Amino acid sequence: MDKGSRTIVIVVAVIVLLAVVGYALGLFNVDASGDLKTPEVSVTGGEIPEVQVETGEINIGTEKATVPVPEVDVKTDNVEIDVPTVDIKPAGDDGSAKQ
């Protein structure tokens, strides 16, 4: 895969991820009307190939180790600062989609 194709795939993946997150957070509401009809598909001929897959193995665990850890004496003060906030208002449903 060349660099241009890889960039397009990454951009599309990011857009899809943002849409899913936005919908999950209620940033937009989707209403649909009408009936869902699947297309009729006819398949003739062909053959399913036999596939054999061998996979590697990944083991995750822990082990004891001794590492040097510096001792630090930290003095703290309380200071008043402005911190960022996030306020999410879910999309409303105006009932425009007819059932």
Score class of each variant (00 low, 15 high):
residue 2 D to I: 09
residue 4 G to L: 15
residue 5 S to C: 04
residue 5 S to L: 05
residue 5 S to Y: 03
residue 6 R to L: 13
residue 6 R to N: 07
residue 7 T to N: 08
residue 8 I to C: 00
residue 9 V to N: 12
residue 9 V to F: 06
residue 10 I to M: 15
residue 10 I to S: 13
residue 10 I to F: 04
residue 10 I to D: 13
residue 10 I to Q: 15
residue 10 I to T: 13
residue 12 V to G: 06
residue 12 V to Q: 12
residue 12 V to T: 08
residue 13 A to C: 09
residue 13 A to M: 13
residue 14 V to W: 07
residue 14 V to T: 12
residue 15 I to A: 13
residue 15 I to V: 12
residue 15 I to F: 09
residue 15 I to T: 08
residue 17 L to W: 10
residue 17 L to K: 04
residue 17 L to Y: 06
residue 18 L to E: 01
residue 18 L to M: 06
residue 18 L to C: 11
residue 19 A to M: 09
residue 19 A to W: 07
residue 19 A to H: 08
residue 20 V to G: 09
residue 20 V to A: 08
residue 21 V to I: 15
residue 22 G to L: 13
residue 22 G to I: 08
residue 22 G to H: 07
residue 23 Y to D: 11
residue 23 Y to F: 07
residue 23 Y to S: 11
residue 25 L to A: 08
residue 26 G to Y: 09
residue 26 G to K: 02
residue 29 N to Y: 14
residue 31 D to V: 07
residue 31 D to T: 10
residue 31 D to K: 02
residue 32 A to W: 00
residue 32 A to V: 10
residue 33 S to H: 03
residue 34 G to E: 01
residue 34 G to Q: 00
residue 34 G to P: 01
residue 35 D to L: 03
residue 36 L to T: 12
residue 36 L to N: 10
residue 37 K to P: 00
residue 37 K to W: 00
residue 42 S to V: 13
residue 42 S to I: 11
residue 42 S to N: 12
residue 44 T to D: 02
residue 44 T to W: 06
residue 44 T to C: 03
residue 45 G to S: 05
residue 45 G to H: 09
residue 46 G to E: 04
residue 46 G to C: 10
residue 47 E to D: 09
residue 47 E to S: 12
residue 47 E to C: 02
residue 48 I to L: 10
residue 49 P to D: 04
residue 50 E to G: 04
residue 50 E to I: 02
residue 51 V to N: 08
residue 51 V to A: 14
residue 53 V to E: 13
residue 54 E to W: 02
residue 54 E to Y: 08
residue 56 G to F: 03
residue 56 G to Q: 07
residue 57 E to K: 15
residue 58 I to Q: 02
residue 59 N to E: 09
residue 59 N to D: 08
residue 60 I to W: 05
residue 60 I to P: 00
residue 61 G to E: 04
residue 62 T to P: 02
residue 62 T to Y: 05
residue 62 T to I: 03
residue 63 E to W: 03
residue 65 A to L: 06
residue 67 V to N: 02
residue 67 V to C: 01
residue 68 P to K: 15
residue 68 P to M: 14
residue 69 V to N: 06
residue 70 P to S: 14
residue 70 P to M: 05
residue 70 P to F: 03
residue 72 V to N: 09
residue 72 V to T: 11
residue 74 V to I: 13
residue 74 V to H: 05
residue 74 V to G: 05
residue 75 K to N: 14
residue 75 K to V: 08
residue 75 K to C: 01
residue 75 K to M: 06
residue 76 T to E: 11
residue 76 T to Y: 10
residue 77 D to E: 12
residue 78 N to I: 15
residue 79 V to P: 03
residue 81 I to C: 06
residue 81 I to K: 15
residue 81 I to D: 10
residue 83 V to D: 04
residue 84 P to M: 00
residue 84 P to G: 00
residue 84 P to W: 00
residue 85 T to V: 13
residue 85 T to K: 12
residue 85 T to C: 07
residue 88 I to W: 07
residue 89 K to L: 10
residue 91 A to F: 04
residue 91 A to Y: 03
residue 92 G to L: 11
residue 93 D to N: 15
residue 94 D to G: 06
residue 95 G to W: 03
residue 96 S to W: 04
residue 97 A to I: 01
residue 98 K to H: 10
residue 99 Q to Y: 06
